[in-house]
Design a protein around this nucleic acid. Structure first.
Length: 314
DNA sequence: TTTTACTGAGCGGCCGGCGT
DNA sequence: ACGCCGGCCGCTCAGTAAAA
């Protein structure tokens, strides 16, 4: 279970907040204030370890190494998540950030979000990668993502039942140039039938708009709650049962989340958002509450590497 | 500096050819 | 008409090299 509270004070020192909310649409721009500091890494580490703990236990068990393998033990180089390729760590960072900001900032609708457990263990390709890597240290390849939405959080009612969930996409890009953001949202360039250069349409808007009303992640979450702490989460598990019924399920209200994280670029003005904040972009048609978060950093990849290199090092 | 095309690694899906 | 096999495409992630 993910139990570590978010380091809110460190976030405040790290990021300037520009929150807005109008009707069903919320927008939060976060800009890095100062330089990368070791104290920030230290403040983030417990949260990231907590977020990855379930998957670390699961993967290490799967490939047959200790949770804290001693150096020199066969397979000890294959520790999750530190050993993953940098691209994969970037992706994980975005997903953890989605949880961190959900638990830390006020989103559209004013709900209180929590992530009882991150779903990284279902990142199926990671398991295969680690399995191979543990046997062949030279093994290197890219890892592709979890299927379905990148991220899932829930809001608990007073009785402990799940009354709402938040799901969506979390992306990292090294440089957040306009064309990069556009590609994320609208898809890459391709040719249409007449040979014209057009966006493929397979971007974030497409993914967010077409996600199933009850994402698979809710079932995955329920299973982890059952195996993790069935007593504490009994009401939550029951409420998810009702929502997951294939017919006549109780409709669980949903908030969509899109988080884009990456490094600033010269052409972006200070306090200028990448996605309009005044009102929800017309491309968003899912009709739920919709929250956009932009995390704009400087040398963000150094922070990511510093955090991930420091996990479980004590 | 920004935009675009290409790269890497494996896998699911689709198509064509072949044998029966 | 059916199944099997090989080959190729595209999908996935994000980064980098090359072009504008």
């Amino acid at each position: 279970m993910h139990t570590c509270p978010p380091p809110k004070k460190a976030l405040k020192d790290w990021l300037t907040e520009y929150p807005t909310a109008k009707g069903n649409y919320g927008h939060l721009l976060l800009e890095q204030k100062g330089k990368l500091s070791k104290s920030l890494v230290d403040a983030l580490r417990p949260y990231f370890e907590s977020a990855h703990l379930d998957a670390r236990e699961y993967f290490h068990e799967a490939i047959g190494i200790d949770l804290h393998p001693d150096a020199g033990v066969v397979g000890s180089h294959a520790q999750y998540p530190g050993c993953l390729p940098s691209t994969t760590r970037r992706g994980l960072f975005g997903e953890v950030m989605a949880g961190l900001v959900s638990e830390s900032y006020n989103f559209v609708g004013g709900h209180s979000w929590s992530i009882p457990v991150f779903l990284f263990r279902y990142h199926a390709d990671v398991e295969k990668y680690l399995f191979d890597l543990a046997r062949d240290p030279s093994r290197k390849r890219t890892v592709f993502g979890r299927f379905g939405s990148d991220f899932l959080g829930v809001s608990f009612g007073k009785d402990g039942s799940v009354v709402r969930f938040i799901a969506g996409e979390a992306k990292w890009r090294k440089k957040l140039q306009p064309s990069v953001v556009k590609e994320l949202l609208f898809g890459e360039w391709t040719k249409d039938d007449d040979g014209n250069r057009v966006r493929s349409g397979k971007g974030i808007w497409y993914e967010v708009n077409r996600d199933t009303p009850v994402p698979h992640g809710l079932r995955q979450l329920q299973r982890l709650l059952e195996s993790g702490d069935p007593v504490k989460y009994s009401a939550a598990i029951l409420s998810l049962d009702k929502a997951l019924l294939r017919r006549g399920g109780v409709k669980l209200p949903r908030t969509d989340l899109v988080l884009i994280a990456g490094n600033d670029v010269p052409t972006r003005g200070s306090a200028k958002s990448l996605i309009p904040w005044e009102k929800a972009p017309s491309e968003y048609t899912a009709g739920n509450n919709f929250q956009v978060v932009e995390v704009i950093l400087k040398d963000g990849e150094k922070l990511i590497d510093a955090v991930y290199d420091s996990l479980w090092r004590e």
